[in-house]
């Protein structure tokens, strides 16, 4: 190995280290977005569930009280 090659390899290693650090950061930020996305969908499902439960309760109420009123 000559001096030029050794220096070049060292420079490549330095670059790769920098890129690795940047990539770690991007990974973290992507992960955070993924978590937020799942949370949005989970909340959406929960709110739908609540609406469904409320509707069911409403239906039951209507059936019970409606019958009684008759």
């Amino acid at each position: 190995m000559t001096m030029d090659t050794i220096k070049a390899e060292h420079e490549i290693k330095e670059l790769l280290k920098q890129l690795e650090t940047d990539l770690d950061d991007y990974y973290r930020r992507l992960d955070a977005l993924g978590v937020e996305r799942r949370e949005v969908l989970r909340l959406f499902a929960r709110r739908l569930e609540k609406i469904e439960v409320a509707k069911m309760q409403q239906r039951v109420k209507e059936q019970v009280y409606g019958e009684a009123e008759k």
């Binding site: 030029d4 090659t5 220096k7 070049a8 390899e9 420079e11 490549i12 670059l15 920098q18 890129l19 940047d22 990539l23």
Partner: peptide
């Protein structure tokens, strides 16, 4: 953009290493 900029700046500075890379 950031990664490519970093690589480009590095490549401009380290030409022989660029070829090896």
């Amino acid at each position: 953009r950031s990664l490519l900029t970093k690589i480009r700046d590095w490549a401009n500075k380290n030409k022989f290493a660029t070829t090896l890379l």
